[in-house]
Nucleic acid binder design. Structure first.
Lengths: 154, 154
DNA sequence: TTATTAATTTATAACGATTACAATATAATA
DNA sequence: TATTATATTGTAATCGTTATAAATTAATAA
């Protein structure tokens, strides 16, 4: 089984409620739903994608709330920013060490298992975050020849 | 000697002119100077930093030219985008495989030597670009205690 | 050299993602 | 229930960047 397809336990809203509480956050319905979407769907959505998805079931939701909530989650360090495309913030609630690969044809962002990473020359530095971002084509799009490599640079 | 201090050959303007020509680019003075700045100074500057630096010797330079030229260099794949901070494009004319570390106190971006990187689960994917971005503190700022770790998230 | 054409640069407007702000609504506490 | 704090909203503002059209400069042809 490919790691991308690996099943992870699905979080219930109650799980999310507890997790937010543990991090000192009150669990409003928007916070619950936004975090639940991130942790269960794992599609690394943009703020806009989260907004479009959640307003279907909660029409009163405002884009500002999505942005505010994501910023709050980042500050509390319960989600991470995925910076694999310029001017396109994506968000990931899985904090374990892994990389990201964006398919330049379909736009999807895949999780990536990192076997080993060895750096040198970092004596005296302190590291808070490590991000490994790849860009290329997923097998589907590669087969469908959906992309012209000589096209625009992201 | 630390890798950050390693000396690289300095490019003359004539070197740059030839390099641009090899990549099908006419060598205007702005293109020469922008590329020369990137390749010789290796500070991974933003467009604004390039503009501020070069307008000192070339007062007619416009920000639009800097943006246009950087975009052109990216399209021709003679520079790479360094995406270590959201909403802050930085540029690097060194294309050999290396990582970047941004010091969150002084804002400088350091080059990083990568000994090994082993990934798995990429069967069927095609990879165009790999980016390794770290965030933390450089030795100088660490010693000077210039940063409050509980501060804002980038 | 001059005329013509193409490429580059400029100033400015427009853009898209995000943040700031002030007003309103909701929730917690007294 | 009254009071206070927190969360959410709609909208304006901001920031980095891109688009556009005019002006400048360079290359080529006459």
């Amino acid at each position: 089984m490919d790691h991308q397809e690996k099943k992870q336990k699905r979080w219930s809203l109650e799980d999310v409620r507890q997790y937010l509480a543990e991090h000192g956050l009150r669990a409003s319905i928007y916070r619950l739903k936004i975090f639940e979407f991130l942790i269960n769907e794992r599609t690394h959505p943009t703020a806009e994608e989260i907004y479009n998805r959640l307003k279907k079931e909660m029409p009163a939701l405002s884009p500002a709330t999505v942005y505010n909530t994501l910023r709050l989650f980042l500050e509390k360090k319960i989600i991470q920013l995925v910076n694999v495309e310029k001017n396109e913030g994506r968000y990931d609630a899985t904090l374990s060490w892994h990389g990201h690969l964006k398919c330049l044809a379909c736009g999807r962002v895949f999780d990536l298992h990192i076997e080993t990473l060895k750096l040198s020359g970092l004596e005296g530095f302190e590291i808070f975050e490590k991000h490994l971002n790849l860009r290329g084509l997923c097998p589907e799009c590669l087969k469908a020849k959906k992309y012209d490599k000589e096209g625009k640079h992201g």
